[in-house]
Simulated scan of single mutants.
Amino acid sequence: MNLALVPLAFLAATPADAGEVFAGVHRQAVNTPLSLSSSEESGVDLSLGYRFGGVGRTRLQPYVFGALNTKGDTSYAAAGLSYRFGDRLYVRPGVGVAIHNGSARNYEVPGNGKIEFGSRVLFEPELAIGLQATDRLGVEASWVHLSHAQLFGKQNPGIDNIGVRLNWRL
């Protein structure tokens, strides 16, 4: 396939097949039962991403996004798959992998000011509850979790980020 034709594919896509751009603001390191050391980091994550159109005739959507922490703590980029259940009101679970710039050391002693994730590559499950406000604009309350699922050690500090996203269908 000629890569020069890729932008034309986006222009030719119908609304049902087109993707969406999303942007979010999340509170980083919210204490939940899924994270052990969330108080180690703080700040706000600003995210920007893209969900591709549905795979085949499904609502399964591949996605990519990046999140930048405003206090210089852990930032990351993620890619995965999400599925949208519902139309005007919906639930969107997703699962992906992320690469981060935080500490990849194994968890040792809490209180050093950084979350030691134990791996540079982490699982990135997420869940959103949304409202499709117009044909193009959607608003979501979302939760994003990063962890290694105890694959790289017994301790798995993880991190939970909770916030809102705006989605714009192309």
Rank of each mutant, 00 (worst) to 15 (best):
N2G: 15
A4G: 14
A4M: 14
L5E: 15
V6Q: 12
V6H: 09
P7F: 09
P7L: 13
L8N: 15
A9W: 15
L11F: 12
L11V: 14
T14C: 09
P15W: 05
D17T: 15
A18M: 12
G19V: 09
V21L: 12
V21P: 01
A23E: 07
A23V: 12
G24I: 01
R27Q: 11
V30H: 00
N31L: 10
P33V: 09
L34C: 10
L34E: 12
L36I: 13
S37M: 13
S37Q: 14
S37G: 14
S39K: 10
E40G: 05
E41S: 04
V44D: 06
L46F: 13
S47Y: 03
R51E: 14
R51Y: 11
F52E: 11
F52I: 09
G53R: 07
R57I: 13
T58M: 09
P62H: 08
P62A: 11
V64F: 13
G66Y: 04
G66E: 04
G66M: 07
A67S: 08
L68Y: 15
L68R: 11
N69A: 07
T70V: 10
T70A: 10
G72D: 08
G72P: 04
D73A: 11
T74M: 08
T74H: 04
A77M: 15
L81D: 02
S82V: 07
R84G: 02
R84H: 02
F85R: 10
G86D: 05
G86T: 05
L89P: 03
Y90K: 03
G94T: 02
G94V: 00
G96W: 00
V97C: 03
I99E: 13
I99A: 14
H100R: 10
H100N: 10
G102F: 00
S103N: 03
S103C: 04
S103W: 00
S103D: 03
R105M: 14
V109M: 14
V109S: 15
V109N: 14
P110H: 07
G111F: 06
N112S: 11
G113R: 02
F117Q: 02
V121S: 08
L122I: 00
E124I: 02
P125R: 01
E126R: 04
E126V: 03
L127F: 01
A128C: 10
I129Y: 08
Q132F: 06
A133C: 04
R136E: 12
L137S: 05
E140W: 02
E140I: 05
S142Y: 06
H148R: 06
H148L: 02
A149L: 08
Q150R: 15
G153M: 07
K154S: 15
Q155H: 15
Q155R: 14
N156Y: 02
P157H: 00
G158T: 01
I159V: 14
I159A: 12
D160H: 01
N161F: 01
G163A: 01
R165Q: 07
R165N: 10
N167C: 11
N167D: 15
N167G: 13
W168D: 05
R169T: 06
